[in-house]
Deep mutational scan, measured.
Amino acid sequence: MAAGGDHGSPDSYRSPLASRYASPEMCFVFSDRYKFRTWRQLWLWLAEAEQTLGLPITDEQIQEMKSNLENIDFKMAAEEEKRLRHDVMAHVHTFGHCCPKAAGIIHLGATSCYVGDNTDLIILRNALDLLLPKLARVISRLADFAKERASLPTLGFTHFQPAQLTTVGKRCCLWIQDLCMDLQNLKRVRDDLRFRGVKGTTGTQASFLQLFEGDDHKVEQLDKMVTEKAGFKRAFIITGQTYTRKVDIEVLSVLASLGASVHKICTDIRLLANLKEMEEPFEKQQIGSSAMPYKRNPMRSERCCSLARHLMTLVMDPLQTASVQWFERTLDDSANRRICLAEAFLTADTILNTLQNISEGLVVYPKVIERRIRQELPFMATENIIMAMVKAGGSRQDCHEKIRVLSQQAASVVKQEGGDNDLIERIQVDAYFSPIHSQLDHLLDPSSFTGRASQQVQRFLEEEVYPLLKPYESVMKVKAELCL
């Protein structure tokens, strides 16, 4: 049975990233139509530049190519590739079939990587351009969430054990800070992308030097003109047959890092959902379990974690691919890159769409948070109580021993009897502590235990987050809708 299948058929496997999760716009960027249309555009740009620099290419040939950029006979191309065992030459023939007058000058002087690699770089750039505003929107939604809850005390956790208090907004800023680093890295790697350009079979530009009869300047002009037509500021000066596969490492490393950030955020949300302090959106008709109707599973956060793990592992592909590119190139890269580049971007696209949807509907339960604080705060307040007693004339050592005994009794009630923490009640009825009984409410005010959390939130948002989001103001209103 021949390899390949009808990918629109229910009898043929289709990647869930495309069929179930990723956005239509990201799927289109990695589609065959987008790819092969870009090949034709690159052939047109090459012909236009070659004509401008004096090669015998007519206006009629150029116009014929322009008129057929979208006229792609995919069936013919597939048949040609089956016959020739070469995808680029299959599309040269297919393009030439609908451009008979231009057929002889299509791909003039070029090698397969002229269309293959340059198209990949265009796709990487455009895919990054799709991700950047999506990530900015996630940051914006979380920034709104953090600002609104900047002063809401909550129990902090280290080692997932109760620690000092923080605020809900401050905790959210930990998430935002990681995503801001990801946004900066995505922008950097996007701006650092260079075009492969017009380089020939081993990167020496020998074929173009021959076409222009040894004119170095025209060869350099050709490279520059096509690079500018493709919208790049610069091209690699040095290439082998391909652009260095280190570029793929750079791009997928940034995406993998984004995956790590999203995994951490969504894990926190899942843990908070278990504590009943916070939940992701839950639709009115949504079913959490087929057997347990009360369940409210954090399905979206779980999906993000599941896909983020996949995204983090994909960076190993370009690392290994770059390491086995012998001399000017081997074909070890080809099949692998067809999979890992598309999957990385479709996965990143999915987790950003999902995280935006989550961040637009996060639900906080202040009463649950308050109750958990009441359970733990008495123990945390013991040092403040000791200091207040010393100020009232008591002995630190005597007070410490009193607190120690009462704390152990209260802990026994919590752990052995399943009761509430009654340390404060014990202190309130103990005559030894009568000098500070009137101060206990103040000493137990949760806001006095959150330090500068709310001020940190305000400063972080104003100095770091809002300036970073400013270039994306025009796209901030787009909502994230999930079908599944």
Rank of each mutant, 00 (worst) to 15 (best):
E376H: 14
T119Q: 14
L174N: 15
V219D: 00
L341E: 09
D6S: 12
A260C: 04
L69E: 11
L331Y: 13
R141V: 12
T38V: 08
Q210H: 08
R337G: 02
H7K: 13
N118E: 04
T119G: 06
D268A: 05
S306Y: 07
Y294A: 05
T321S: 06
D422Q: 04
I72S: 05
G203V: 01
N297C: 00
M316F: 07
R296Y: 03
A335L: 03
A348I: 12
P10E: 11
Q456H: 09
H97N: 13
V219N: 10
A256L: 00
S140G: 12
G156Q: 00
G214T: 08
V138K: 05
R188E: 06
L482G: 12
L132P: 09
D11N: 15
F157P: 00
R194S: 10
H310K: 05
M292K: 04
K284V: 09
W326F: 15
R137Q: 15
F212P: 09
G203R: 02
F145A: 08
A90P: 04
V262S: 11
G156R: 03
P467C: 11
H159G: 01
T52Q: 07
S323V: 04
A206K: 14
D333T: 04
E250K: 10
H310Y: 05
E81N: 01
E401Q: 11
D215V: 09
P318Y: 00
L42A: 06
V219R: 01
F232R: 01
E481M: 14
T204H: 06
L440N: 15
S359Y: 06
L307N: 14
E220M: 13
S290M: 04
S261V: 03
P24F: 15
L142Y: 00
H97G: 05
L211H: 11
G169A: 03
K415P: 04
S290H: 00
L314K: 06
S306W: 00
E48S: 07
L211R: 05
G156S: 10
K147S: 11
E481V: 13
P446Q: 02
V138Y: 03
Q286R: 01
Q164S: 09
Q241N: 01
I62Q: 04
E328N: 00
Y466K: 14
G394Q: 06
Q184C: 14
E481C: 14
M292A: 03
T154R: 04
F433L: 06
V315G: 10
Q205N: 09
G109S: 05
D248A: 03
D129E: 11
A322Y: 13
R137F: 15
L271H: 11
V168A: 09
R141H: 13
L319I: 06
V475W: 10
D398F: 11
E213L: 09
S9A: 13
L406Y: 14
R372P: 10
K246G: 02
Q63S: 03
L272R: 01
D144R: 14
I385E: 00
S23W: 11
E425H: 13
K170H: 14
T267N: 07
I176A: 09
T52M: 08
L53A: 07
I237M: 10
P366Y: 01
D268Q: 07
A453P: 01
A18W: 15
P153R: 02
T94Q: 08
L55N: 11
E302Y: 06
D430Q: 13
R337S: 02
R37N: 02
R149Y: 15
D445R: 11
Y21K: 07
G361P: 07
T321Y: 10
K479M: 12
D317Q: 14
P435E: 11
I386H: 13
